[in-house]
C-alpha cells in the first residue's frame, strides 16, 4: 500500500503531517515576538512587522517570577532523578543478580506498583503530607516521586543482560556488593540510565497534576504550574508575553530532546509505560 505511492507523494504526505505537528510550535514562536496589535490581525504573518520580542520576553519574566519557576523546575527534576537513581539502581541489582529469599515477592510488588497510574495515590499522599505539615513545600512536590518503579523495572531488565562472570570476577577481585553496584553495574548501565534520565526529566518537568494539588505558593511553582497561573491572572489579554513564557518553558525540553534524541527515543521505546 505504502510502496505504490510514489516517493514524492509520500514525502508530500509526511511534510503535510510534519507541518501540522509543528504548527503549534511555529505559532508559539511567532506570537511570542509580535505586539498585541498584530496578534489578532485577520491575515496571519509568520514574522511581525514591528518586532516586540524584547517587550514580550521581559514582560514574561517580570509579570510572573518565570525565572523562579524555571529554577524550581530544575531543582525538582534534579532531586527527583537523583533520588530515583540512588534507590532504583541497588534494588534493580538485587533483583537481577542476587539470590535471596523474598526476591520474587519484592519483584511481584514492583510489577504490581507498575500498574498503578500516578494519580491514584494522590489523595492519601495529600492527607499524609498535610498531617506532616509538608504541603506547599518542595518536599511535597519531590517526595511522592522519589521512587520510580518503572526505573527499577527498566534497570533490572538491563542488569539481567550483564554477564554473571563479570560479577563473579568482581567478587574474586574483592568488591563488596555495594561496590559492585557502584563500580561495575553503574558504568555498564550508563546508556540505560541516560535513557531513563531523559524520561524522568520529561515526565517531571511536564508534571502538572500533582504540583497543581500540592502547591499554592507562587514561589514554589514548577513551570507548567507557573504558566497556568500566568494564563489565569492575565486571562487571555496578553498573548505575546504568555507565548514568550510558553516558549521559555518548553525550550529546555525541546533543546534536550534535540541534543539527546537517541536516548529519548530509546527510553520511550524501552518503556512504553506511563
Amino acid at each position: 500500500m505504502v510502496d505504490r505511492l510514489g516517493p514524492l507523494f509520500r514525502h508530500a504526505v509526511l511534510l503535510l503531517g510534519a507541518a501540522v505537528m509543528l504548527a503549534p510550535f511555529v505559532l508559539m514562536l511567532s506570537l511570542s515576538v509580535k505586539p498585541a496589535a498584530e496578534i489578532f490581525a485577520p491575515q496571519f504573518r509568520l514574522l511581525p512587522e514591528q518586532w516586540s520580542a524584547w517587550e514580550n520576553y521581559s514582560a514574561a519574566f517580570t509579570k510572573v517570577p518565570l525565572a523562579r519557576f524555571l529554577m524550581n523546575g530544575f531543582i525538582v527534576t534534579f532531586c527527583i532523578f537523583a533520588a530515583q537513581a540512588v534507590t532504583a539502581l541497588p534494588m534493580a541489582y538485587a533483583l537481577a543478580k542476587l539470590r535471596w529469599r523474598g526476591r520474587d515477592t519484592v519483584f511481584g510488588l514492583v510489577l504490581l506498583a507498575l500498574l498503578v497510574p500516578p494519580q491514584v495515590p494522590a489523595i492519601p499522599l495529600y492527607i499524609g503530607l498535610w498531617q506532616l505539615g509538608l504541603l506547599d513545600t518542595y518536599a511535597a512536590i519531590i517526595l511522592p516521586s522519589t521512587v520510580s518503579v518503572f526505573g527499577i523495572f527498566l534497570m533490572r531488565q538491563f542488569f539481567r543482560t550483564v554477564p554473571n562472570d563479570l560479577i563473579a570476577a568482581a567478587r574474586m577481585d574483592g568488591l563488596s556488593e555495594l561496590g559492585i553496584v557502584w563500580r561495575i553495574m553503574l558504568p555498564t548501565a550508563a546508556p540505560a540510565l541516560a535513557a531513563f534520565g531523559c524520561l524522568s526529566f520529561i515526565w517531571n518537568w511536564n508534571e502538572f497534576f500533582w504540583p497543581y494539588i500540592a502547591v499554592q505558593s507562587e514561589h514554589l511553582m514548577t513551570p507548567p504550574l507557573g504558566i497556568a497561573f500566568f494564563s489565569d491572572t492575565e486571562s487571555g489579554t496578553s498573548w505575546g508575553p504568555l507565548m514568550a513564557a510558553a516558549t521559555v518553558t518548553t525550550a529546555p525540553l525541546a533543546l534536550a530532546f534535540l541534543l539527546a534524541q537517541r536516548a529519548f527515543v530509546r527510553g520511550v521505546t524501552m518503556s512504553g509505560v506511563k
Binding site: 554477564p163 562472570d165 563479570l166 570476577a169 567478587r171 574474586m172 574483592g174
Partner: peptide, 20 residues
C-alpha cells in the same frame, strides 16, 4: 568468601570490565 580465598580466576568469557 571468594575475596578471602586468594584465588585468581580466568573466565571463559574473560569477564573484563568493559568500561575500564
Amino acid at each position: 568468601r571468594p575475596k578471602a580465598r586468594d584465588l585468581a580466576m580466568v573466565f571463559q568469557s574473560y569477564a573484563l570490565y568493559p568500561y575500564m
